[in-house]
Design a protein around this nucleic acid. Structure first.
Lengths: 188, 188
DNA sequence: TGATTAATGTATCAAAATGATATATGGAGA
DNA sequence: TCTCCATATATCATTTTGATACATTAATCA
C-alpha cells in the first residue's frame, strides 16, 4: 500500500518497462519526467529499500563479472505491478504547484516595477528554452505514434507545449502592464 | 538570511500589508495564494517562531482584554521588510510543479485507456471549477485597478486564467486521443 | 434555554521530500 | 600520468506535508 510515498509510484512506473538502477531513475526523473515531476536521491534510495522490503521490487546485483563496476539493478515484481495498477485507478490526484515566480509577483508592490519585470523575464527565458526541447520531442514522436506506449508520452509532451505557450502569452502581457504600456481596465 | 525556508518569505510578504495570526496566514495561503502556492500549519508555526527569534517579525499578543479570545498577532519589522525586498530582487526562482495527473498518464500504458480518460476527466472538472472562481476575481478586480497593489493580484489571476484555459484545451484533445477518436500523426 | 455543530486558533508529530554533500570507480582525453 | 567528468550509492540537516490534538468562541436551531 505504501502509505503516502509518491516516489514509490514513480519507481514502480519506471521499472514497469525497464530495469533500472537508482542512478538511472534519477536520470529518468530529470529527463522525460522533468516537465511535470521532480525528485532527488534523498528520496529515491530510501524508497528503493522500502519497496524491496515489501516485495514490490527485487534487486539483481550485477556482479563486477568482468567489465563495468558493481551496481544494483532493480526489477518490478508481480505484486509491484498490481500496486501500480491500483494507484493508476485511484480517483484522487494531487497536483502540487509552487511557482516562486508568481509568489514574488504577488508581493511585487513592495519593490519597483523593474524588479517584477526582471522576475517575469527570467521566467520567460526558462520557459522558452524548455518549450524548444518539448517541440523537438513532439516532432520526433509523431513518426512513431503507432506504438501505444508512445501515445502516453505524447500526451505529456503536448500538455507541456500547450501550457508553456500560455505562459509565454502571459509573460508578454505582464511585461506590458508592468512597464505601463498597457492600461488594464474593464471593457464594460 | 533564513537559509532555504520559503514559508518565511510567504509570511513576510503577507505581513507586509497587514498584521496577521498564524491562522490568518493559513487562510491567505488557502485563499488568494492557492492557485500558485500552498503550505500547512506544520510549517507556518515553526516559521513564525524562527522569524520572531531573528527579529524579522514581532508579536503583539492581543490580551483577552474584554472581548474575543487570546491570539498572537504578528507584525513585520524594518529588518523583515529589508529581507523581503532582498528576496524579491533575487534572480533565481524555483518553480516546483508536481502533477500527479500527468504522472499517471505517463504510466497509463499499463492500464486500459478508460483509466486514463477518468484521470483526465477528474482533472478537467477541478480546473473548470477553479477557472470559474478566477474569472469572478478578474471581473471584480477590473473595477479597482487604479490602485497599484491590485495590479499584482491581477497578474496572478490572469496567469491562472491563461494556464487553466490551456489545461482545458489539452484535456479535450487528450480525451479524443485516448478514446481513439483522433489519429495522431505528423502532417508532413 | 440548552445542545450541537462550525469556525477560530495554537501546536505538534511521523513521514516524506529537498538540496547538498561525501565517497568512490571507470572512462576519455591531454 | 594526470585531470576531469559521468556513473553509482548513500546519508544528512532542514523543510514540508498531512494529520491530528486540543481548546475556545460563534452560529444554528430545536
Amino acid at each position: 500500500m505504501a502509505s503516502d510515498n509518491k516516489m514509490n509510484l514513480v519507481i514502480l512506473g519506471l521499472l514497469d518497462h525497464e530495469d533500472l538502477t537508482g542512478y538511472d531513475i534519477k536520470k529518468r526523473i530529470d529527463g522525460s519526467l522533468r516537465y511535470f515531476w521532480k525528485g532527488s536521491f534523498g528520496s529515491i534510495y530510501p524508497a528503493l529499500s522500502s519497496l524491496e522490503e515489501s516485495g514490490l521490487i527485487r534487486n539483481v546485483k550485477s556482479k563486477s563479472s568482468e567489465s563495468g563496476r558493481e551496481k544494483i539493478v532493480y526489477k518490478i515484481t508481480a505484486a509491484g505491478r498490481k500496486n501500480l495498477l491500483a494507484w493508476l485507478s485511484e480517483s484522487k490526484s494531487s497536483n502540487s504547484l509552487k511557482y516562486e515566480t508568481l509568489l514574488k509577483l504577488y508581493f511585487g508592490g513592495v519593490a519597483d516595477n523593474e524588479v517584477s519585470i526582471a522576475t517575469v523575464t527570467e521566467f520567460e527565458k526558462e520557459v522558452e528554452s524548455d518549450l524548444a526541447v518539448l517541440r523537438t520531442y513532439k516532432d520526433n514522436l509523431s513518426t512513431v505514434l503507432d506504438e501505444r506506449d508512445h501515445v502516453f508520452f505524447y500526451l505529456t509532451v503536448t500538455f507541456g507545449i500547450e501550457t508553456y505557450e500560455a505562459y509565454l502569452r502571459w509573460c508578454a502581457d505582464a511585461k506590458k502592464i508592468l512597464s505601463g504600456k498597457k492600461i488594464v481596465r474593464n471593457k464594460r
